[in-house]
Amino acid sequence: MITALIRRLAEMVFVMVGISVMVFLIFFATPGSDPAARIAGRNATQEAVAQVRVDFGFDRPLPVQYVLMMKRLFVDRDLKSFVNRGQNVIPQVLEATPITLSLVFGAAVLWVIGGLAVGVIAAATQGSLIDRTLMVLALIGVSMPVFWFGEVMNLLSQARFHDTWLFSWVPALGYKPLSEDPWGWFKTLVIPWFSLAVLYIGIYGRVLRANLVEAYQEDFIRTARAKGLSPARVMLRHALRTSLIPFITMFGLDFGVLVGGSALLTEVVFGLNGIGRLTYIALQNLDLPMILATVIYASFFVVLANAVVDFIYIFVDPRMREA
């Protein structure tokens, strides 16, 4: 177990180094691009560009450039965004991280609970009106783009019905840090959580239902029923436990990608200055240092989420333990 953990961590580091090399090569070693001119800024003088070139070691071989860049980014932490002069990249990423994490964690709790509930209830009542209603609702949830649904929620809670009892509690858009104002944090995030989770509740509910329905064809379900177990027990202890693997796999992928910045649309709609927005702005301005930092940050979470998923597999399915 311990060796598996260490091996997995080593793999993670390896993957992340690989990703940082790729990103570095794409942005800094693409023929025809002059990273020194980019870093120096749009209206920089020839002297300034030359100075940057020497500072960043762009006149030296690529491997050296890469090591220098990583040293600046992680060790010295003085890699500056060229758009907002004087702003270091790392503190900006660190500032945006808790916002995105709060958003995605909360939404993940909602969509895991919601997905499980929808999947289990639909599968248990397979073919009935409840099942069909849930599946239609799930399909609607999947089909609603988050930017549209988020705006509708904003329209209802911030404007149209803001003065009614229903939404008078909703604070203005923006983020309140958890450490300073936990209740405010919760109130500002409830609606974004829900808006982001709706899509995933739909997807996860439908996938789980399909897996459960398939599991009910299995012999071991018949054995469980032949044992005289209650339907709830057959569902939860036998069918659900064996149907969770695809659910967990999807969760690992979605969670990692969302924390890595894919929650952009939700962040923009609800005025949350998270990682997605940071990456988006950096890409718009071709802010290479910032792109480098956010991509490596995102890769860290994707890789981490996948590693966590692998460990959950081992916990959920004993057959994976020997592999």
Partner: peptide, 21 residues
């Protein structure tokens, strides 16, 4: 009655037991 008075031995023991318990 099922499981207590009338017990069922399924055909294929490879698939008849829940794999995760």
């Amino acid at each position: 009655i099922r499981g207590k008075q009338i017990a069922f031995i399924p055909q294929d023991p490879l698939t008849a037991l829940t794999p995760v318990h």
